[in-house]
Design a binder for these strands. Structure first.
Lengths: 336, 336
DNA sequence: TTCCATCGTCGAAGCGCTTCGACATAAACC
DNA sequence: GGTTTATGTCGAAGCGCTTCGACGATGGAA
């Protein structure tokens, strides 16, 4: 293993000079820098992560806490994780993977052992049990999602309320007067995850403002459940012409069910979704949708964390504005 | 921060004694151990990961390299990752997440900086460019999947060939004489991923042995492609009564397409799949399938890696035997 | 009883890096 | 021209832990 003293000797400088070349924390003459950098390349030197962490009390590793519960759309988690890793690398950090399962002990452990410098926590619940711990930890963290009390925490997420509103407003603009929201599985609401409720809030508020008739229907993540909801809607709300779907797993089966029940999309029924663009694009009927920007959220989350690590000022709350893309699933209300 | 000297003072012993209590590398009297452990608990001591890594040249972190390409079923990757993390924790290790994107440089970096002790590499290709590097690295690694030349590497995977055979044999046993394999997207074959080809090999070999008429059909991971394949099969192979599907994304659409084309499953057509149990169970028609045991593979992979880290002997190749579960999608051939 | 092995503990030497203060030297000021 | 100030580099002191050799105490073998 080649170490800093080897580089120093090879370049004819002291180890501290090599260190300063690497960190840029003190001015180094152009000439010396060149020489040191050449030696580093030539010897293939890589600073020992442990030694660096010990001396600098910075590990350059951050923890990503991923959820692993039912009712969470896995590809979104994965996309998110990838974007966190990619962004972290741009900032010269690596990512340690923690599962929800490890819980608070896991967080405390990696914090106390100085294994990580900070946390990115996904799937934060309204009343998340980890919040007091995260507040008390000496290491910074960024949450994806908003708990009930975000005081003193840095949170970021899509503005789900605005997303719900955007969908309703889009439908209203097209002339639809009776609309429904097909939501996430009931357990998502029970578990007090904020984002699902925010969509409902936005949906309901915008419908009220626009004087639209509206109803909300949680839906299990199975084709059968989708079919059932579709049947119920057709049966109970014959005047329905607009639907907002906030449930990745049932997009396709729901549209299929409606069509099999005689409602053509978008001729008879306009459908908008809140889901990853990738999903909306690749359905049989490409859906008009508000994007779930997992990659962007991941990137921004890491950047917020980096700011905190650099002791720069950081906004406590970041709500990403919804971005809606019109596709083939919405059309003006068909008034025969 | 409480350190080992604090614990030592508190317990009235030397730091080295505390260290030996923690590591068990030297005998310590029961009495002393008790006292030290009490002090550790009382002070809430946690050894500093960096210091430990520096002194012991073991970071107790292993790297998990995940794929992020098209044609890979994301939930499987995720399940796998979770099982790797969980198993690693049981062995007192943490997991660093690397993406394929970082490539060989990433591997070399975390190895050279001593950030990780070893690697678990997913999605190994037949002629994977990372193999020479992994062979030359001083840190052990375990691959998920089998490259063309596995000499000197530790590999583990489901025995896909046997899985293909098992599906064919199951269909043959039920009296089916004309069968087809609906495979992974073409890019999976082009990219020389071994597992997809192994399924084809097993399928073809077993069909030949059993004197079944058989054909193979790669299929894109979209409902439209599934429908196309179904139509083609119905058109070109009217005698077809058995299908093996090795493509998670098209299971449901494929079965739907067959039924819409007038083939009832399992009455007219028996379908078996190679996919995660969870998927097979939750379809409209639960599928008879060979399980893709991601959790088990992950667990075994980590355990292999741990053995290598402990310099214990390790098998080079581990092929998990296929496990088939009969569900509602297969039945004896209907001979009118 | 003597000798040797084992047990249990300690002290000290590092592991490879960062960082602080010190010290030249060169540039800038009145 | 002398005093500051900035620039560029060095040496040494740790960061918190593990590990090695040493050493007294104990116990069994001879």
């Amino acid at each position: 293993m080649v170490k800093i003293t080897d580089v120093a000797r090879h370049a004819g400088v002291s180890p501290s000079t090599v260190s300063y070349v690497l960190s840029g924390k003190r001015p180094i003459s152009e000439e010396t820098r060149q020489r040191v950098e050449a030696s580093i390349r030539e010897l293939g030197y890589r600073p020992h992560a442990g030694a660096r962490a010990l001396a600098s009390s910075r590990s350059n590793v951050l923890a990503l806490v991923v959820p692993l519960r039912a009712g969470i759309h896995v590809p979104v988690v994965m996309q998110f994780a990838v974007s966190v890793v990619t962004t972290a690398r741009r900032h010269d950090h690596d990512v340690l993977l923690l599962t929800q399962e490890e819980g608070e002990d896991g967080l405390r452990r990696v914090a106390d052992t100085a294994l990580v410098d900070g946390f990115v926590v996904m799937d934060v619940q309204l009343d998340d049990p980890r919040l007091p711990l995260l507040r008390s930890l000496e290491r910074p963290s960024v949450m994806i999602g908003f708990p009930a009390d975000a005081e003193g925490l840095t949170c970021i997420d899509l503005d789900f309320k605005a997303a719900g509103e955007a969908c309703v407003e889009h439908l209203a603009r097209l002339g639809h007067r009776v609309i429904a929201l097909v939501g996430s599985p009931p357990e998502v609401y029970v578990r007090q995850t904020a984002f699902a409720q925010r969509v409902v809030q936005g949906f309901t508020a915008a419908a009220a403002r626009g004087r639209l008739a509206s109803s909300v229907h949680p839906c299990e993540a199975t084709p059968a459940a989708a079919r059932e909801v579709a049947e119920q809607l057709v049966r109970e709300q014959p005047a329905l012409t607009g639907v907002v779907v906030h449930n990745e797993a049932v997009l396709e089966p729901l549209v299929d069910a409606f069509e099999q029940l005689g409602l053509r999309v978008p001729t008879d029924l306009s459908v908008t979704a809140i889901c990853p663009d990738e999903l909306a694009e690749n359905l049989r009927v490409p859906l008009t949708s508000v994007a779930l920007p997992s990659a962007e959220v991941g990137e921004r989350a890491v950047e917020l964390l980096m700011r905190k690590l650099d002791a720069k000022t950081t906004p406590e709350a970041t709500l990403l504005p919804p971005r809606m893309t019109e596709r083939a699933s919405t059309a003006p209300r068909n008034t025969p």
